[in-house]
């Protein structure tokens, strides 16, 4: 194991990069839909209860 005392902080950083970087194995993590496109709790509730016209209905 290398003695870090004589190393500069940049050298320590390089050493950590070299032995610390996790293995590369990319994965896709798609963003999920959490909000109705026409958000708002009250608006969403009223839409569900068919008390408001859906934006699609106007098309």
């Amino acid at each position: 194991m290398q003695n870090t005392v004589p190393l500069s902080s940049a050298e320590v950083e390089r050493l950590v990069q070299a032995i610390g970087t996790p293995v590369s194995a990319p994965m896709v993590m798609p963003k999920q839909v959490l909000e109705a496109p026409h958000g708002g709790l009250l608006r969403g509730l009223m839409l569900r209860l068919h008390l408001l016209a859906s934006p699609r209905q106007g098309l």
């Binding site: 610390g20 996790p22 293995v23 590369s24 194995a25």
Partner: peptide, 29 residues
């Protein structure tokens, strides 16, 4: 090769973003 360390340059998404960053880069392993 068994214990790793990495530091993010920006901490977008806080802890959830931190974990997500790992999974996107290394999760496949």
């Amino acid at each position: 090769g068994r214990i790793f360390y990495r530091r993010r340059t920006d901490n977008r998404g806080k802890k959830a973003g931190n974990v997500e960053d790992f999974i996107q880069k290394s999760g496949g392993a």
